[in-house]
Design a protein around this nucleic acid. Structure first.
Lengths: 240, 240
DNA sequence: ACGCGTAGTTGACAGCGTTCACCGCGAGAT
DNA sequence: ATCTCGCGGTGAACGCTGTCAACTACGCGT
C-alpha cells in the first residue's frame, strides 16, 4: 500500500482490477439468476459500462462461464483441502467423513456453483484442458489422498479389489493415477472411483433436485453412505 | 385406416398430429444442438411455419422443454422396464445387472436426453408435480423392484441395515416408499437409495464428461460397482 | 511534445422468446 | 343454406441477447 514502486506496472494492475470486478459481478448475477440467465449485458449494466467494453477483458460469454467454472472448482478444492488439513491424519475414516461432509456442505452452500461445475459440460469437444481440468483434478486429488493414505496404512485389501479388471483397464487406471501423481495401483484407483461416484451421485441427485423433497435433510443418509463406502473398501471383496 | 367413423373428431386428430410433429422436430434439434440451443424459431423454421403459430400448441419454450424432459424419463423408464421384464426373476443379481446396464446404455445412446433429464432442474420451486415426476418415479420404481424382490427373497440383512437411522429419517423413508407403493421398510429404502446414488453418480460423471477421457469405456468398472453395491446389500453391515 | 496503444463509447446486425392484430377456413347452429 | 364463431395460421413488432466495427479520449513511453 505504501510502496512507491509497484511491482506490476499500474496499467496491468488496473486491468486486473476491472477483470476481477467483472468476474465478481458475473458471479453475483450467476448466484441469483442461474447460469442460463447470466448475460454480459447485465454484467455491463451493473458495472455501469457499455456491453461491448467487456470484450476488452473477456473473449465471449462462454469463456467467462468457463472462467467462473474454474473458480468454482478452485473454491471447492480449497474447501476440501482445508478439511483434509484439519483432520486427524491417523483417523482415516474420520478424515474421510470430514472431507466428504465438507464436499456436501460446499454443494449445499453454493448450489448454483455446484450446478455450474458439475452440470453437463457442453457437448463433446471443448477439451477443457485449461484451468477447469486442473482445479477439478485438485479437488478429486483430496479424495484420492484420503484413500491412498488409508491404503498405505494397510486398511484396504488391495489384492482382492484389483481382481476382475481387464488388463487394459488396469493400464488406464494406472495412467490416471500417474496423471494425478497418486502413488497407488489400479486396485486403489477402483476404490477411489467408487467413493467418488457414490459421493457425487448423492450430491448431484440432492442438489439437482431429483431426490423427493419429502426426504428433508438427508444428512444421516449421506453419512451412512460415506461410512459404508469407506468401510467396504476396508474388507475383502465378495466374490464378484 | 378404413374406418369411416373416427373415434376422435378429426379436428382434435390434426391438432395432436401437429403437436406430435412439433415435439419430434424439437427433439431432433435437441439431439444435435443441445438443450440450450433449442429455439422455438428454429423448430418453426424446420416445420415451415411462423414462429408465433407454435404458441397455439405450446405455452412457452420452457414448457416444451419440460414436455421433452417427461418424454425422456418415459423412454428411460420403458427401457428399464423392458430389461426388468426380460430378466430372470430368480437371478436377482443378474437382473440387477441387466437393469443397470440398460440404464447405462440408455444414457450412452441418448446423451443429450440424459443431460436434459438428469441435469440441474431449474432453481427452486418449479414443483414438477406433473408428468416429469411421474415418469421419474416410474423409472426408479424398476430399480426399487429389483431390490425389494431381493429383499423378499431373503438376500438382504435388513435388520442391520436399518440401524443407525434417526426415527424421523425412518419415517421419511417409509413415506417415500409408500409414495412409490413399494412394500419395504426404511432399511430396504436405504439400500435402494445407495444403489441409486451409486448408479447415477457413475453415469452422470461419465455422460457429463467429468471422467478423464483416458479411461476409455469404463464398462467393467461399471459392472464391478453395480455388482459390489448389490453384494454389499446382501451382507451384514460393518459396524458404522 | 508527440504518437501510439488501450479502454471505453456509440451504433448496428442478427437472432431470440413472446405478444398482438389480423385473416381465412371449416364446423356447428339456426 | 346461411350465418357465425372459434381455431390455426400469418406478419409485424417489442425488448432482450451476444457480438462486431468504427470512433473517441486518455495516459504512457519516447
Amino acid at each position: 500500500m505504501t510502496a512507491v514502486s509497484s511491482p506490476v506496472p499500474r496499467r496491468e494492475r488496473l486491468r486486473r482490477a476491472t477483470l476481477e470486478e467483472i468476474k465478481r459481478t458475473a458471479h453475483a448475477q450467476l448466484a441469483e439468476l442461474g447460469p442460463a440467465a447470466l448475460s454480459l449485458r447485465g454484467v455491463a449494466r451493473a458495472m455501469g459500462m457499455a456491453p461491448s467494453a467487456l470484450y476488452r477483458y473477456v473473449d465471449s460469454r462462454e469463456v467467462l462461464l468457463e472462467e467462473l467454472t474454474a473458480d468454482g472448482f478452485a473454491s471447492l478444492a480449497d474447501a476440501l483441502e482445508a478439511a483434509f488439513a484439519a483432520g486427524d491424519p491417523h483417523d482415516h475414516l474420520g478424515r474421510w467423513l470430514d472431507v466428504t461432509r465438507a464436499h456436501r456442505h460446499w454443494a449445499l452452500n453454493h448450489p448454483v456453483e455446484y450446478r455450474l461445475i458439475f452440470g453437463p459440460r457442453v457437448p463433446e469437444g471443448r477439451s477443457v484442458d485449461n484451468r477447469v481440468a486442473a482445479e477439478l483434478k485438485r479437488s478429486v486429488a483430496v479424495l484420492f489422498r484420503c484413500m491412498t493414505e488409508a491404503i498405505e496404512a494397510g486398511l484396504v485389501d488391495t489384492g482382492q479389489v484389483g481382481a476382475g479388471l481387464t488388463p487394459t483397464m488396469q493400464a488406464r487406471l494406472r495412467a490416471w493415477a500417474a496423471d494425478h501423481a497418486v502413488p497407488i495401483g489400479p486396485a486403489g484407483m477402483t476404490v477411489c472411483l467408487t467413493a467418488w461416484t457414490q459421493l457425487h451421485g448423492f450430491l448431484s441427485l440432492e442438489t439437482f433436485g431429483h431426490l423427493p423433497p419429502a426426504l428433508g435433510d438427508p444428512a444421516d443418509l449421506f453419512d451412512r453412505q460415506m461410512t459404508d463406502v469407506f468401510a467396504q473398501a476396508c474388507r475383502p471383496r465378495p466374490a464378484g
